[in-house]
Design a protein around this nucleic acid. Sequence first.
RNA 1: GCCCCCGUAGCUCAGUGGAUAGAGCGUUGGAUUCCUAAUCCAUGUGCGCAAGUUCGAUUCUUGCCGGGGGCACCA
Length: 556
Amino acid sequence: MKQKIREIVLQAAQKAFSIGELPSSEIPGVEIEEPKVEAHGDYSSNISMVMASVQKMPPRKIAEAILKYIDNSEGIIEKTNIAGPGFINFQLKKSAWHPFLLKVHNENTKYGASDIGCGKKVQVEFVSANPTGPLHVGHGRGAAVGDSMSNILSFSGYEVQKEYYVNDSGRQIRTLGLSVYLRYRELFGKETEFSDDYYQGDYIRDLALLIKEEKKDLFLDKNMEDEAVQYCARFASDYILKGIDNDLKSFGVKFDNWYSEQSLFDSDKVDSAINNFKNKNIIYEKEGAFWFKTTDYGDEKDRVVIRNNGLTTYFASDIAYHKDKFDRGFETIIDIWGADHHGYINRISASIEASGHDRDQFKVIMIQLVNLLRGGEPVAMSTRAGEFITLKDVIDEVGNDAARFIFLMRHYDSHLDFDLELAKKKSNENPVYYVQYVHARISSIIDKGREEYGIKDIDLNDKSVSMLTEPEEIQLIKAMARYPEVIRSSAELLEPHRITFYLMNLASFFHTYYNKHRVLTDDKVLTHGRLYLVMAVKIIIRNGLALLGVSAPDKM
RNA sequence: GCCCCCGUAGCUCAGUGGAUAGAGCGUUGGAUUCCUAAUCCAUGUGCGCAAGUUCGAUUCUUGCCGGGGGCACCA
C-alpha cells in the first residue's frame, strides 16, 4: 500500500512538472509514512518539503501543484489535504484495505516473504561457545537472536547457513584436560593443587568420574601424564560439545554445520593463510613473533599471529576461518558475538579486507549482556566458584517459548534483564502469552464456529468482507498490511526484535477487537467476514512466532 | 589514558530526519448472564547537558556528564 501511494505521488509530481507547474523534474528522497496521529490520515508524504529547495518554491505551493494531479482512478483515496509545514496527507477508503485480507489468506505461510535476498548466500555464525563448559543465559540470547535472524533472512530470500565454530584446539582445551585430570587424581586420594586458572564447576568432577570408570587407575602413572591430559581434554570437550548440542536442540536451535578449529590446522589452512599474508608483506617479524599489520586497515595496533614460542594465536586461526567462509562461497558473513568481544571486530575486518573482500561483506552483531534476575534480585553467578545457572536450568524452569520470546524482546544492543519469576508468570507482564493467547482464542472461535454454527469453510464473498467497517477491524487490517514491511526492515537491519514488537502490537489490536465485537453472530454474512478477518490474524501470529522460534498453541 | 555500546515516563524498554514521542509494568478506579479475564477500558509535565548541520533533530556531527564493556605474544 505504501508503495502504491508512493507511485501515485511521484507520478503526480512528474505530471505537474511536464505541465509546467513545477520548474524542476528533480525529485529527492521522498518518504511515505504512516502518521502517528490518526487525524493526519493513513499515509503522508514529505515530498513538498524535500523538494522545496530544488524547486525554489514554498512547500505548500508545491503540495498544491502535486495534489492537482493525484491519480485516484482506483478509487482508494477518500480524501487528501495539506497540513503542517507541507505534508500531503492521504485518507484512504475503508474498502481500500479489504484486499489485504485476501492476500494474507492466499499467501498464507508465505505472507511477508520476499526475495530481497536474491538467493545470495549468507552465513550466520553464532553461539560458538568453547567446549569447556555448559552454555549460560548469554549464549541463549545469542542462540535465539542467531536462529531467528537466520529464519528471517531465509524468509526474505537469502540462502542461509547456520554455523557453530568449535574452538577445539589450543590452550583452553589443554586447560580443560588438565582440570579434569587433576580431579581424576583427586578421586584416587592424590593431593593436587587446583588453582583458579583451572575450570571450576561440578561438571569437571563428573567428567573425571566417567574417566575413572573407563580407565580405572591407568592414568595415575606419572609417565602417562601427557597422554592422560590429552585424553581427558578430548574426552571432556567431546562430551561437553555433545551436551551443548543437546541443549541447543531442546531449545529448538539446529545448526547446519559445526566447524572445527582443529580442522583448519589439519588441512593447513592456517599455515597457508599466514603464508599468503607474509607474501603480501602484511605480516612481519618482530621480537621473535609474527605480527599482522592490522593498523594498515584501521586497527589501533598490530596483532600477533605467531607467538615467539612458535604457537599460533587464536587470531591466526580466525583469519583462516573467515577466509575459508568466503572460499566456501558466502557473499555475506554475519558473526554474532558477545559484547565483550568487540575489540575483535577491527582485526577480523582487517583480515577480511586483506584477503581481498569488502569490509561490508562482514557484519558483526554484538549482543549485550544478560542480567539474570529472580523476582527483581540479581541471581548470584560466579564462574570462578563454579556456581552458575546454565541455559538448560533456565529453559527447564521457564520453557522454550518464554525464554526465546524474552531474548528477542530487546534490541540486541540493549542490556537485557531476564527475570525468572516474570518469565513464568502467565499475565500481561509476560508478553509471550499475550501473543500466544491471540492464536489460542482464534482457534477456539473457529472450533466454536464449526461446532455450534456449523461453519466448515469460509464462504468468501465481497459482501462479507465489505461488512468489515468497524474502526477496530480496519485497524487490524492496516496492521496486517504492514507486516511485510516489518519483515523486510527486520531482515535489512538484522533486527529480529522488530517482529516481537510488531506481534505484541497486533495482539493488542486483536484483544481490543475481541472485547468489543463478537465474531460469531446471528448475521451469517457478517460472521463469515469476521471469521475471515480473525483467521488472517491467526496466520500472521503463527508466521511471526515461527520466525522467532516460538510455538503457536491452539489451546492454552 | 584510548576505543565501542548505552542514556527516552517511577521501573523495563520501543521509536534507521518529520506534525501532538509510544508500549508493558507499577499506581488508582472500572468491565465477565454472551466466541478462553493468560483479556479489556480509563489514569502520564519524560528524549542526560551544550553547541552545530537541516525547512525540520530523540534520531546525524562535535564536546561534556553518567552507566556498562573492551584495550595480552588469553580465548
